[in-house]
Structure formats: C-alpha cells, structure tokens
Design a binder for these strands. Structure first.
Length: 413
DNA sequence: TCTGGGGTCCTTGGCCCA
DNA sequence: TCTGTGGGCCAAGGACCC
C-alpha cells in the first residue's frame, strides 16, 4: 500500500509577502494584478472573510474589500522561496512531484522505515516549514494522489465572515476509509469538474460524490462523453493509480499578455508578437529544445472571444525570428479593428533542434533584430532580462520584454 | 463590479493514405 | 476504378487546473 502526501502551502504568495512586510500581519492583504484587468493570485484569510479569493477580478476584489492592501507580486522571489520549501520535502523522499510553486505530491512509501508513518512525516514537514521558513502548510495523507489532494483541502485554514478557523494542518484518510471520506463531498471537488461539467451533473441530479457513485455509467457517458464519465466514475470510488512523477517534462512553452489598453492596429500587434516570440524562443533555448508546433492566440474585447491559429512544421525551431516568420501571416489574417485585449505565443511538440541558423543567416534574414538569439541570451544572462530586446519591440525608448514577474496576474495600473 | 498567465488534456472534424 | 473504412496527424476550440 502506497503512502502519498499532498503538501499545499497556505495562502503562499501572501504569506511570503508577510515575511517581508510583518507590519501587514493580521490585515487583509491581496497579491495579484493591480490594474483593472488583473485578477487576484492570493488573498490572506483576513481578506477571504470579505469574499476575496484567487482568480477573482481585481476590480471586484477592491469593491468587496476596499481597505485591503494590494501588492503586485514578485514571481521570481516566490520561486526562490518555493525552492526552499522543496528542499525540505527532499529530505524525506526523492519522489517529489511539484504541481506549482506552492504544492507538491510526495510518495513517502519507502521513507516510513526511516522517518515514521505518513502522518508523522506530514507533521514533521509542517513544523519544519513553519520553524525554518515561517510559512504555513497543510498536508493530506492517503493511499493515492487524488485522495491525498482532497485531504489537504480539508486540512486547510478556513475564513468565515466572523472568524478564521486555523484548520487541522494534517488530514489523514486511512486505507479503506476513502469512501466514507469522499461520499459527502460536493461533486465539484473532484478533479476535472469545473463550471460546465458541474452544470451537466446538476441536470442529472448529481450534487455529491455519493450521487455520482450511484449513477449509471451509460447515463453519465451520454451527458459527458465516455472518457470523462469513466474518469469521474473512478474518482468517485477513490480509484487513482497514477504514480508520483518527479521529473515531468514540459510539453509546451508559451507566453501571453493582456494589454492595459486594447490594440486596434496591426503594427501594435506585430510589436507584441515580436516581443512574445522573443520571450518564448529564449525559454526554448534555455530548455535546450525547439518547437515543431507554433500557436498564435488572440483574444478580442467583444465578449471575451478567443481564437487560436497553429501550424506544425517538420523541424523544431527555437529562434524568435523564425517564430515571427511563421506566425506573422496568421496574425495578418486577423482583423484587429474590434479591439484586441490579449496576444499569446506558444510552442509545443517540443524536441531537439537539428538545424541551427548561423549568425550570418540570422542577421541576413532578420533585419528587425539587432543581435542574434544566442547573443541576446548571453547579454540577458549577464545584465538581466531588460538589458536587450528586439528593436521592433522597443516602445517609448525602452525595451519592452516579457517578464514572469509583476504582470503575471494582469496589466499593472 | 468582469474575468491573468502558466499550463494539460480532450473532443471534433478535416485530410491523407493504406 | 470507385467506394467505404479506419488510423494517424493536424487544427481549432473548450474545459480544467493552480
């Protein structure tokens, strides 16, 4: 029998900010996009009492909790702290699968002889994270990933209108007790049930995991499709045999950006395309891969409609100039006059790059670029991401590069 | 009040080919 | 030669996750 832990940091981004701003402890604090088009990335439990939660549009959050302190967020710093948390997990098992900066699965089946049983390891991890990093962490313990993840949610602190419940910290679902734990949970807690699927399930009269477990698979398949029906039916009985995978490789690399103001001109769109292609190419090279499939994403301001255009070539590419060359004709075919609020570029079908353009080829073929991609990488490594960029991505005399930082949750104010 | 950015996975439909 | 079929690949969109 396996022992799986799901460790989930409590209000991670906010908690990290509170270490830097101890004067804000006990106050409603919100980290996320500070502009009107941003969303909340994390809210302190004090802010959650007012109905502020992650993914809530910042404008609504301001309305619900006008006295909250709003911080822009610092993705780079959170990454560093996340690595410190990871180092604590690594003390117990090499089988750590990070899901995001603030949560991970740990398979501690083989660690029990050394460190004690699952619940004991969970408690130790919690106290080490608290003592060494001054951060809160909730841990679920179960015999598989799915149940462990749901258990960690049960262990979390909870904000009510009049109080904050600190939570149990560790929730253990013993082998054999899965069904008793799962049955009363609302069906939307299952992995893969979002607003659309929930609506379909409600129409079938299914609101709890218990309801789902009793429904005929054929009926479920008619409503959801056979694949999703089988998936949910398995989860409803706590069936999940996925392994903890420590070294999952990325399947796509992309960047997208919502603009503070809509773009209406092709020239503006091209500027964004060049900048995003440069950022994606840089990350591809850093990962040592190229992309065979390139996708352009455009979101209009008229009711949030989004279109994607993609193409797959025979060779994997990792140069900004080539990405622009492939995607630009697709972008030309899109009429920006209704107002474009977002442009995205991503590469998938990742693999080794066989043909690398020479320096001369790149310069000859890319008059808009003042330096080759390789040269850009060297300069950025030495002087920072903002030190250099494509000439066509320069606006107002400044290089407009894509950063995984302040704009992570929408354009700034 | 109005909806980010990083992803993964699935479905559908078209096309090509055996 | 024509038609049907099924697999593989691709494009596009959608649902979902944190």
């Amino acid at each position: 029998m396996r022992t799986i832990l799901h460790a989930d940091m409590d209000a991670f981004f906010v908690s990290v900010e509170l270490r830097r701003h101890p004067e804000l402890v006990g106050q409603p604090v919100v980290v996320g996009g500070t502009g009107n088009r941003g969303v909340v990335a994390a809210a302190s439990y004090e802010a959650r009492r007012f109905g502020v939660h992650s993914a809530l549009p910042s404008a609504i959050a301001r309305n619900r909790c006008p006295h909250a302190v709003f911080l822009a967020g610092d993705h780079e710093h959170y990454g560093k702290v996340s690595a410190e948390v990871r180092a604590i997990f690594d003390r117990y098992t090499p089988l750590v699968e990070p899901l995001s900066l603030d949560e991970a699965f740990l398979d501690v089946t083989g660690a029990k002889g050394l460190f004690g049983n699952g619940p004991k390891i969970a408690q130790q991890i919690r106290s080490e994270v608290a003592d060494e990093l001054n951060l809160g962490c909730s841990v679920g313990v179960a015999s598989n990933k799915f149940v462990a993840k749901l258990a960690s949610v049960e262990a979390k602190p909870r904000a009510y209108v009049d109080r904050i419940d600190p939570g149990e910290g560790v929730k253990v679902v013993a082998a054999g007790a899965e069904q008793v734990f799962l049955d009363p949970l609302p069906v939307e807690r299952l992995w893969g049930v979002g607003p659309v699927t929930l609506e379909k399930l409600i129409r079938l009269g299914i609101t709890s995991v218990r309801d789902l477990r009793h429904v005929d698979l054929a009926v479920l398949a008619t409503a959801l499709g056979s694949n999703q029906a089988r998936h949910l039916a398995a989860l409803a009985v706590g069936d999940d045999d996925r392994d903890v995978e420590p070294d999952r490789e990325a399947k796509s690399i992309g960047h997208e950006e919502t603009f503070a103001r809509n773009a209406h001109e092709r020239s503006e769109m091209r500027t964004h395309l060049v900048r995003l292609a440069d950022a994606v190419a840089s990350r591809l090279r850093k990962a040592g891969v190229g992309a065979r499939t390139l996708t352009l994403k455009v979101r209009f301001d008229d009711g949030f409609t989004t279109v994607t255009r993609s193409t797959t070539g025979s060779e994997a590419i990792d140069s900004a100039e080539m990405i622009v060359a492939v995607l630009e004709p697709m972008m030309e075919a899109i009429d920006p006059s209704p107002g474009i609020r977002l442009v995205g570029v991503s590469g998938s079908n990742l693999g080794p790059v066989f043909h690398q353009m020479t320096l001369d080829e790149a310069v000859a073929h890319a008059p808009t670029f003042g330096a080759t991609d390789a040269a850009l990488d060297v300069i950025r490594d030495r002087f920072g991401a903002d030190a250099i960029g494509p000439a066509s991505a320069v606006r107002g005399g400044k290089v407009q590069n894509v950063r995984r930082g302040g704009q992570q949750w929408g354009p700034d104010q």
